[in-house]
Design a binder for these strands. Sequence first.
RNA 1: GGACAUGUGGCGUAACUUGGAUAGCGCAUCGGCUUGCGGAGCCGAGGGUUGCGGGUUCAAAUCCCGCCAUGUCCGCCA
Length: 629
Amino acid sequence: MSNIFKEEFENLISDAIKKQYGNIEVPELRYSIDVVFGKDWDISSSIALKLSKLLKKSPKIIAEELLKNIKHSNFFSEIISINGYINAKLSVTELSRYVLNEILTKKELYGSSDLGKGKVVLLEYPSVNPNKPWHIGHLRNPLLGDSLSNILKFCSYTTKRLDYIEDLGLQMAEILWGKKNLDWDPSDKKYDQFLGEKYVEINKRIKEDEEIQKQINQILKEMEDTSSKEAKEIREIAEKSVKAQYETAFKYLLYHDILIWESDILSEKLLQKSLDLLSKNSLIYIEKEGKLKGCTVLKTSLSGKADEENKKVLLRSNGVPTYLGKDIALHMWKLGIIKIPFKSKEFILQPDGSKAITTSSSGYPLDFTGADLAINIIGSAQNEPQTVLKNTLEIIDSKKAKNLVHVSYGELNLKEGKISGRSGTWLGNERNYTADDLFKFTVERAKEILLSGDKISPDINPDEVSKRIAISAIKFDLLKIDPITKLTFDWDRALDFNSNSGPYCMYMYARTCRILEKGKINNNNNNNNNNNLLNDKDISFAERDYGFELLKLLSLCNERVEKAANEYKPNVLAEYLIEISALFGKFYEHNSVLKGGDATKLRLAIVNAVRQTLYNILMLLGIEPLSSM
RNA sequence: GGACAUGUGGCGUAACUUGGAUAGCGCAUCGGCUUGCGGAGCCGAGGGUUGCGGGUUCAAAUCCCGCCAUGUCCGCCA
């Protein structure tokens, strides 16, 4: 369901077109309609301009003709034509009554949708290798994943948040070499931080001594046997490291449902089944000669270009699978093309009370048999392999392959260049570019601003409040931009909490709460009584003021949520929060609520509606607002 | 070399899918507002030939073609 006023306007115009011109082909009427702000009218259609060519008449005449045929509706107090546009004023009382009623009865469900009813969506993120802490470049990934997962859940999807852990790759082999050959005392550091620093040291050593690389390759081969001592040792290290990474995740209120391990995929023969299926469809062959002799490769046409130089290896000549080889197998499982009876057990109890489940060599059957929608949150650097993956699956099962979506995002760089786990550019002098340090310093900054204010509530806990403000600042900053846009990290910008920021929206939310408290309106999200609803007399004091503009804006909530869901763009909702917050700021300055005379009850209801909508949308971005800050 | 992506005031961005009224917003700059319903705020000013050139159209930031610039990928890395 989109906006009821837009629908009504669309229907009126649609009927008028039929009446005046018969069954002509109307180009997407709904896209010609806009709700507008700060003008004499509230809703507008440019359909007459679009029909001009078809009807061979001037837009002005068409608009006039349509206007004559538009029926009366209680929703609109006036409909006119200007320069070929058909513009309408909304009935202030009808809009106010309808929107307030919707929000104050639906409460925390206001804006939700049934778009994905009955469908299971699997979101994979962030799948960071377990040999280092999350750095700020990684962070955008789980923030996008978490927010999209919230948004899709709000649209009635059943969501599964998946983390894929690569415990058998080269990077872990290097770690194991380090453990055997370097000083190794992880006791006084966060474990992922410790591994990350060692990883940088190991890579320096590799550059100095070619022999080391050979030793690492030997370890890598031994690890492929998942029952080997090496594989077990590395799994242990990896589990400990992932738990350390999740400490970081929990600070940011990020949680998962399922962890799937590369080693379990190999143990359960998923790769073999995938290769069999590819072979059955004649999509792979063993290279007989040339530099790829002995490798199992994908037919070249699948990479989108029949380029001999661009062959994709799935199995190396020594039989060890490549990343792409494993990835194709993983996605056959995700989409339910191959079913695997994975065993599972609890990995960790998360602070929100939910359990993250992990695949395992023993335990109970994993409750997952394939997704209706599989979303990969992966950086734009991997656009090509993601395309190869999808093209390959298209041939195996075109229907299911259509359910695979790559949400591609621009990677984050530092001013001084790329952020690299291997070379150690994530290590700084006073501050590391890790998610942990970003959090730490943003909290410090938030606390500094908080304590410098002269209006601190005595009943708040500055440490807790600073954390929540920091979370809002970081998440909002990274989510407010279109995912595809690449970012350059800058401490000054990250620590700026002025408008167009998370703290700004949080501040407006806190204001609504304080006004409602003083106006004695219950703002508990879970209360089920509707005492706050208004009668006709209260509504009759509605005017064309900022309060009315706010309600108009709030009425667009559902369509903004669906847009964010359909386009996989949380920034749509961040923009929406800014619009609401800014308009509420004006409303607050220009229309006194508590001293609003006859309009006080109405205005309190508007404030409550703003509060509820801000709350609902902030939560979709993974930001938990505070009633005072 | 090929493929893909991106180019919007000094900086950061929105609108591009679906062409439509004066290109919206923030930062920075300049000026104003406060004993208030919480100033992390509000009001105002200056700042744009939407990378360049062509085309389609009554109408182009938006669609098409060419060029330029930047980034990414093109490995028996992941």
